[in-house]
């Protein structure tokens, strides 16, 4: 081994060390735990079992919660994409001071702590909160809307906070599209809609892809927002897992659920990648 390559390995060491200690080890630990019997004296017993997986996969209740988690995350991702694309478009056209101000506005949801942000939502949508008061005052509704502890509110709040993760990569991709392509398409008779469909959208796909993946995995794993804004009536995988871990101390079952969730969302990511592979290949100019 040359001195240079040894030096390179040395440079990678801190990152590899961090990932090993804080990711590989815990995940290994968790996988191991998910196959253990429920413990009576410690977090888990000594014997191995497939029981937890059998229980999860054999019980319609868990399937329901898992499906709700995956579908909700998909809806969050889709809505986030729809909301973010025009913002990214606008941002990609901005230059100088205007661009800086826009970047700051777009990053603003991330500048508040997760608890503050969610309590903010709770206050805004409360039965006697400002939103209902405004709607009542204008006579748009007759009785206050019950928005808190609904799936809709969870989706809305998640879309709001994930917008930056969608906007920034799409903005990047849009900035890389040469403006003469738009003009060329127009000269061939393309309307604005044709240009969006045939040129801009496919060529911005290298930005849409990472945005979708980021938002999807973040939404699947979101805990605080569903827990605070979703209430006790609707369960999502992360809230259920936490209640297994901290409520009933069923660590092996909780681990198994976490692994099922991770593998499911990985499966969705792989499916999405496979479905869009051709498009990605072509748009990587």
């Amino acid at each position: 081994m040359t001195r240079l390559s040894r030096f390179r390995i040395l440079l990678a060491l801190p990152a590899v060390g961090l990932i090993f200690v804080f990711m590989i080890l815990p995940i290994t630990n968790m996988v191991d735990m998910s196959f253990r019997t429920t413990g009576t004296t410690g977090p888990f017993g000594d014997a191995y079992t497939l029981g937890h997986y059998n229980r999860i996969l054999g019980d319609g209740y868990y399937w329901g919660v898992l499906l709700r988690s995956l579908v909700t995350a998909a809806m969050v991702t889709l809505l986030c994409l729809i909301v973010s694309y025009p913002i990214a478009w606008h941002l990609s056209k901005a230059r100088g001071t205007k661009a800086v101000v826009l970047y700051a506005c777009i990053a603003s949801p991330l500048m508040t702590g997760v608890l503050v942000r969610n309590f903010g939502w709770m206050i805004i949508v409360a039965l006697n909160g400002p939103l209902n008061e405004v709607l009542l005052a204008f006579g748009i509704i007759e009785r206050p809307l019950r928005l808190l502890f609904t799936q809709g509110l969870v989706i809305l709040a998640l879309v709001h906070v994930f917008i930056p993760f969608m906007v920034l990569p799409i903005n990047n991709a849009l900035r890389n599209i040469s403006p003469t392509l738009t003009e060329a398409a127009a000269s061939m008779g393309a309307t604005r809609l044709d240009i969006l469909r045939d040129v801009i959208l496919p060529l911005s796909f290298p930005g849409i892809y990472p945005g979708v993946i980021l938002v999807y995995v973040l939404a699947v794993a979101a805990y605080v927002t569903p827990a605070l804004l979703g209430g006790q009536m609707v369960s999502y995988m992360p809230t259920l897992i936490i209640s297994e871990l901290t409520g009933t101390f069923q660590w092996p079952l909780g681990s198994a659920m976490a692994i099922v969730l991770s593998l499911s969302s990985l499966g969705v990511v792989i499916l999405f990648t496979a479905m869009t592979w051709k498009m990605m290949e072509r748009s990587r100019a």
Partner: peptide, 30 residues
Amino acid sequence: TPANRRGFGVVFQDYALFPHMTVAENVGYG
């Protein structure tokens, strides 16, 4: 008249070919 209804052919200095379309798709786009 907007550019897309003028019916003029334009050739650009950077060619402005659609990178995600094949040569035939580029030529046949209009």
